[in-house]
C-alpha cells in the first residue's frame, strides 16, 4: 500500500444550502471562464504521457492505481453472484499476495448495492466503498422525481457513493439551471447516507458534451452545485475517458480549490484498460492538480479490465517474470 499522502479527510461536504443562482448568473459565470485551446491541451497531455515511470516509482504508482480503482460492473446481465465475485476481487485483488491493496470501491447498479455491501463485509473488507450509479444511468432521461427516487434507493441500500449523470440535453440547450438544480437535489438525497452522507460523483459523458469548453463549464457547474467528484463518462458511450479531458477537469478542480478552498475529486471512467495508461493518468494528476489529489479520496479510475493488467504488471515488477492473464482472477 503506498504511503497515503497528507490530505484532508475524505469527509463529504454538508449539503448545499442557500439559494440557487439564477439562469442568467450561471450562464454569465460559465461563459466567462477562460476558453480551452484544444491543440494546446492535447499537446500538454501528450507531453506528460511521455514521462517514464520505472522501478520504485512504478511500484508505488501501480499500488496507488489499484487502490484508486472503482471496480465496476454495469450490465443488464448482472446478478448477485456476479457482484459477490466482484466484491471478493475488490477486497483481495491478488489472493496470492496479501500486500496487494484493495480497490477503492465497487461500482454497481442501485438494486445490487445492498448485495455488494453484504459481500464486502463478508469478505472482511467493509472499508471498500459501494458506489451505485443512479439518476436514470446512463442516459439521464427521466423526470427529476424518478432521478431522486433512484438516488434515494441507492443510499437506502447502503451505497457510500452515488454516481449520477447530468442531463446532457439540458446542458447542451443552455439550461444550466436545470442541471444545477438536479445536482443539488441529488446531493440532498445523498445526505441521508451514512455519516455525513454519500459522496456524490457527477458524470458528464464528455463525448456527448463534445467540446473542451463544455467540459470546463460542466466541471464548474457541477462543483458549484455540490459535486464531491466529477467524472468523465458512463462507459456506455464511445469515446469515454481521455487524458486531455481528464487533465482539463484536473485544472478545474485545482482552480475551484484555489478559489473556494473546497477540494473536489476526479474520476476518469471507461476505456482505461492498460496499467501503462493508468500510470499516465497518475502523472497528469501529479503535475496538474498536485500530489494532494494522489489518493483514492480524490482520484479514482472507473474500470473493470484495468485491475487485471495492474495486477499482472505488479507481479512482473515483483518477480521479474510476466505471468499472464491465467494467473489473475476473472471477475
Amino acid at each position: 500500500m503506498p504511503t497515503p499522502p497528507s490530505s484532508p479527510p475524505a469527509a463529504p461536504r454538508p449539503p448545499v444550502t442557500g439559494t440557487a443562482p439564477s439562469q442568467a448568473e450561471l450562464r454569465s459565470r460559465l461563459h466567462g471562464l477562460p476558453g480551452v485551446d484544444a491543440v494546446g491541451l492535447e499537446q500538454r497531455a501528450a507531453g506528460l504521457a511521455t514521462r517514464s515511470i520505472k522501478t520504485t516509482a512504478k511500484a508505488y504508482a501501480l499500488d496507488l492505481a489499484i487502490s484508486m480503482v472503482d471496480l465496476t460492473t454495469l450490465e443488464g446481465s448482472d446478478t448477485a453472484g456476479k457482484v459477490r465475485a466482484l466484491c471478493a476481487k475488490a477486497a483481495r485483488p491478488d489472493p496470492g499476495d496479501p500486500t496487494t491493496p484493495h480497490t477503492a470501491a465497487v461500482c454497481v447498479y442501485p438494486d445490487l448495492a445492498a448485495t455488494a455491501k453484504e459481500a464486502l463485509a463478508a469478505a472482511g473488507a467493509p472499508q471498500v466503498e459501494v458506489a451505485a450509479v443512479a439518476t436514470a444511468f446512463p442516459s439521464g432521461r427521466a423526470s427529476l422525481r424518478v432521478k431522486i427516487a433512484d438516488a434515494e434507493d441507492a443510499v437506502a441500500a447502503g451505497a457510500d457513493e452515488v454516481d449520477m449523470v447530468i442531463d446532457r440535453g439540458a446542458f447542451l440547450s443552455g439550461d444550466y439551471l436545470k442541471v444545477h438544480e438536479e445536482i443539488r437535489a441529488v446531493k440532498e438525497a445523498c445526505a441521508a447516507g451514512p455519516g455525513a452522507g454519500a459522496r456524490l460523483k457527477v458524470i458528464f459523458e464528455n463525448a456527448e458534451l463534445a467540446t473542451y469548453d463544455n467540459i470546463r463549464r460542466a466541471s464548474w457547474l457541477a462543483m458549484e452545485a455540490g459535486a464531491d467528484f466529477i467524472k468523465t463518462s458512463t462507459g456506455k458511450v464511445g469515446g469515454a475517458a481521455t487524458l486531455p479531458a481528464t487533465l482539463l477537469m484536473l485544472e478545474a478542480v485545482r482552480g475551484y480549490h484555489a478559489a473556494t478552498g473546497t477540494r473536489v475529486g476526479v474520476k476518469p471512467a471507461g476505456g482505461i484498460r492498460a496499467a501503462k495508461d493508468a500510470l499516465r493518468y497518475l502523472v497528469v494528476v501529479n503535475e496538474t492538480a498536485g500530489p494532494e489529489w494522489l489518493t483514492p479520496d480524490w482520484f479514482r479510475f472507473g474500470a473493470s479490465g484495468l485491475l487485471g493488467d495492474l495486477l499482472m504488471q505488479r507481479h512482473k515488477l515483483a518477480t521479474g517474470a510476466y505471468s499472464g492473464a491465467a494467473y489473475v482472477t476473472v471477475d
Partner: peptide, 9 residues
Amino acid sequence: MVFDYAPAP
C-alpha cells in the same frame, strides 16, 4: 513530491 519519478536514463 510524493510521487517521485525514479531515474529513467
